[in-house]
Design a protein around this nucleic acid. Structure first.
Lengths: 124, 124
DNA sequence: TGATAATTGATAATCTATTATCATTATTGT
DNA sequence: ACAATAATGATAATAGATTATCAATTATCA
């Protein structure tokens, strides 16, 4: 009940080799170069399997389409370039942000999202 | 070209008197108590006018429906209670978060979102 | 008060990402 | 190679929030 297929391999390879989170569309465009004829539905099916297995993570950034990123384990945050619309991973964290909550609130997780221009777009 | 109506007043009053961001549905339910028969479309029309005029702001939190909050001017962030699904405003900020971006990136704004349980839900 | 133009309520339509459907094709264990 | 079953591709369908449409109602001001 879990065959190995070229379509799944293609999706997994695309995600695993990307330095930044990608949209389902981007993944589709890149993966179909490895497996022509690949359907978008199969991309979603593969993404679903990967996220359920904790191999990939859905990244939701207000103001942009849903992105998917390979699960590399380390805690990090994101940057959305409002010019090219690409999402970048940011290293590190400012853990003190959890102190912004009232003392009686229980903070389980947090997100820090920066918006602006990436290196390439900032130069123009 | 801008009549004063009870429906708009109702929507504005609901938003302006709420301590936390509300969804369009919540605003509708509260505002129709002030103006019976109020339609959801009118709520959206009022929200659109208010946000365009910078009197209200759309608050998007991954994992929850869109919320709207009255524009009170002070910089702040949000907390989503994953139990009751309500969004709360948090006072203050940890400005160092902007340093998470690579030096050549230009950071224009940022969002900090905390997730967990609000006071009421944490007790249960 | 009346004419004029904006607003409203009900609801159909839209939008975008994702899922369901189903006939066809491919993978697996024997 | 073969039967059994899972995976695929094309596309219709779905979901949730918001917008468009349009006849009926209402605010405004001369």
């Amino acid at each position: 009940m879990n065959y190995t297929t070229k379509q799944r391999d293609a999706v997994e390879q695309v995600l695993a080799s990307s330095a930044r989170p990608l949209t389902a569309q981007e993944i589709w465009e890149l993966a179909r170069k490895k497996k022509s004829g690949l359907g978008i539905a199969t991309v979603y099916r593969a993404l679903k399997t990967l996220t359920k297995g904790s191999k990939a993570v859905l990244v939701e950034i207000p103001g942009s389409a849903p992105h998917y990123e390979w699960q590399r384990g380390r805690h990090h945050h994101h940057f959305l370039c409002e010019s090219c619309q690409r999402v970048f991973e940011l290293e590190g964290c400012v853990h003190q942000v959890v102190d912004l909550a009232p003392k009686k609130f229980k903070v389980k997780r947090h997100e820090i999202i920066l918006y602006g221009s990436c290196e390439g777009c900032a130069q123009k």
